[in-house]
Amino acid sequence: MTESVSKRDRWRGSRELVTVIILSVTAVLTAWCGFQASKWSGEMSIAFSQASSARVQAADASSEARDARQWDLTIWVQWVLADADGDTTLRNYVEERFTPELRTAFDAWQADGRADTGPFAEKSYVPEGSAHAAALNHRADQRFDVALQMNHRADNYSILTVLFALVLFLTAMSQRELNDRLRDVLLLTAIAGTVVGAVLLITFPVDL
């Protein structure tokens, strides 16, 4: 009987120490998770802002490409009319005013036997600004994907913050005037939550 009482007394003393350790460690881990969630949220905001900026710039570049295509079409119509009238002088005059992009496509069109579709159907025809617009759209997509990834990381840290907050609650409850067995269950559950949370935390990326 005396030995059983002595074991209970030792466990109670150990339980107090374990409780202090769990509270201390969990408090630090909770603060760290909150810090990381904030950092990743900031990275997410920056990435979303960069994606938005790239999208706006891509829209401007696309507008530039449309204007360039419209100009090429206008010049091309004049060339077609001059060619139909057999006006070599006017046709040559118009050709001299082809943009480099139209000139490249025009040469390819002639090499292909002057297909009915015209030079604008040639793969070599790329209006000025098209490549820039495509590059900016690609960058916008990349930054948007990065932002979603950052958001996921911030959410993971937020979930761990909730888990550690629950651990703190269970640990605090284990200190209440409750049945010894219930107190042990609460403390052991808190310990298990701390271990699980710590293991998950190790696998998460860190932003400093």
Rank of each mutant, 00 (worst) to 15 (best):
T2E: 12
T2C: 10
K7Q: 08
K7T: 02
R10F: 03
L17F: 04
T19D: 04
V25K: 08
L29W: 05
T30F: 14
T30H: 13
A31L: 14
A31F: 13
F35H: 11
A37R: 06
A37G: 14
M44G: 12
S49W: 02
A51V: 05
V56Y: 05
A58P: 05
A61G: 07
A61I: 02
E64A: 11
W71L: 13
T74K: 15
W76T: 07
W79C: 04
G86V: 02
D87A: 03
N92H: 00
V94A: 02
E96G: 15
E96Y: 00
R97N: 12
R103Y: 01
A108Y: 07
W109C: 01
D112Y: 12
A115E: 15
D116S: 14
T117Y: 04
G118H: 04
P119L: 05
P119W: 02
F120G: 11
A121R: 05
E122A: 03
K123T: 05
V126M: 06
H132N: 11
A133N: 09
N137A: 07
A140P: 00
R143C: 08
L148W: 14
M150G: 03
N151C: 08
N156V: 11
S158K: 11
I159D: 15
L160Q: 14
T161S: 14
F169N: 04
N179P: 00
L182G: 01
V185L: 09
L186H: 04
L188G: 08
T189I: 05
T189F: 06
V195M: 09
G197T: 03
V199N: 10
P205Q: 13
L208Y: 12
